[in-house]
Amino acid sequence: MKKSVPIIEGLFEWPSENPRLIATRCPLCGSMQFPKSSVCNNPDCDHSVPVEQCYLSTEGTLYTYTVHAYSLREPFEYHKGPYIVGAVELPEGLIVVGRIKVEDEKMLKIGMKMRLKVDKLYEDNENIYLSYFFEPVVEG
C-alpha cells in the first residue's frame, strides 16, 4: 500500500478531512504570509510580537490563469501539459498561485468562485504525492 505524502511539508494540513493551506499571521498588523514565514512581511510592522501559524480560507475568486500547454522535463515531468496554473484571491486579501482543476478550461472565468482541494499530483513506486489545487465551486 502506497503512502500519501504532501509534495512539500508545511504547505497544507495533512492528514486531514478538510485540509487548509498553512500560513502565518502577524497578531499586530494582521498581515499574512503563505507559505509560512518566521517573520511578518508588512513594512509598517514593528515586529514586537512574533507571527503565529494560521489557516487560510478555502474559498476565493479566480484572479487570473493560464493553460500551460507543454509538459515539464525531468525531474518535474509529472506536470503534464496541458495543465492550468492560476491565481486565486482569498477573502484575507492574499492572492495564492496554484494548479487549477477543471473538467473544461472554457468553464473558467476570472472572478468566479474557487475552492481549495488537496489531491494527487503524481505517484511513483513508493508514494502518492499530494498537492493543493483550486477548482470551481459548482453552485446547486
Binding site: I8, T64, Y65, T66, L72, F76, G86, L121
Partner: peptide, 18 residues
C-alpha cells in the same frame, strides 16, 4: 515549479490575461 508547475511564461501569461 515543483508544486505548481509555474514556469516563467506561466506568470507572464497570467499577467497578460489579467
Amino acid at each position: 515549479i515543483k508544486v505548481i508547475g509555474a514556469t516563467n511564461p506561466a506568470y507572464w501569461a497570467m499577467w497578460a490575461r489579467r
